[in-house]
Structures are given as C-alpha cells and as structure tokens.
C-alpha cells in the first residue's frame, strides 16, 4: 500500500511553494504550524492541489483548513489512502 511520508511532504512543499529564507526543510518541521514555517493559507492550498494530483486522493477545502502542520497533512493523506 502507498504511504505518504513527511519527506514526500517536504518535497511537495519546496516544489510548489518554495522554501522560506529562514527555513531548512530537512529540519524537524513536522509539528510546526505552516504559518510559523512561513507558509500562508494560499501555499497550503497549493500543496493540497499537488498532493491530489500526485496521489489521486481528494482533499476537500475544509480538510485543508485542518492541515495546520506538515505532519497533520501527512496523517490526513494517509488516512485517505487507507480508506
């Protein structure tokens, strides 16, 4: 079964939303809110769109609202993949 990892999330974040100047994506960023990392709501929306295209899972807008951290996004995607 496909699983979505934090490294997958890092790749998507950097690829579609860029990397804030003060951030190293390789750091332990899983539990840090996107807003603290330097990603606004538009950036998270873009990440969700890329995940949907890559994995074919649907992510409704209200689910995007709940993805406060990279780990929360990873967990959500894995729940969808397992369902």
């Amino acid at each position: 079964m496909t699983t979505f990892t934090l490294d997958d999330m890092r790749r998507i974040m950097g690829g579609c939303a860029g990397v804030p100047e003060s951030l190293d994506l390789a750091d332990d960023i899983g539990e840090i809110p996107f807003t603290d990392l330097g990603y606004d709501s538009l950036a998270v929306l873009e990440m969700a769109a890329r995940i949907q295209q890559e994995l074919g899972v649907r992510i409704p807008d209200d689910a995007v609202d709940e993805m406060k951290t990279p780990q929360a996004a990873v967990d959500y995607v894995n729940r969808r993949l397992a369902a």
Binding site: G18, P20, L42
Partner: peptide, 8 residues
C-alpha cells in the same frame, strides 16, 4: 529571488 517569493 528567494524561492518562497519566486513561486508566487
């Protein structure tokens, strides 16, 4: 341009 700015 910093990448975070460049993408948008």
């Amino acid at each position: 341009v910093p990448s975070r700015l460049a993408v948008q």
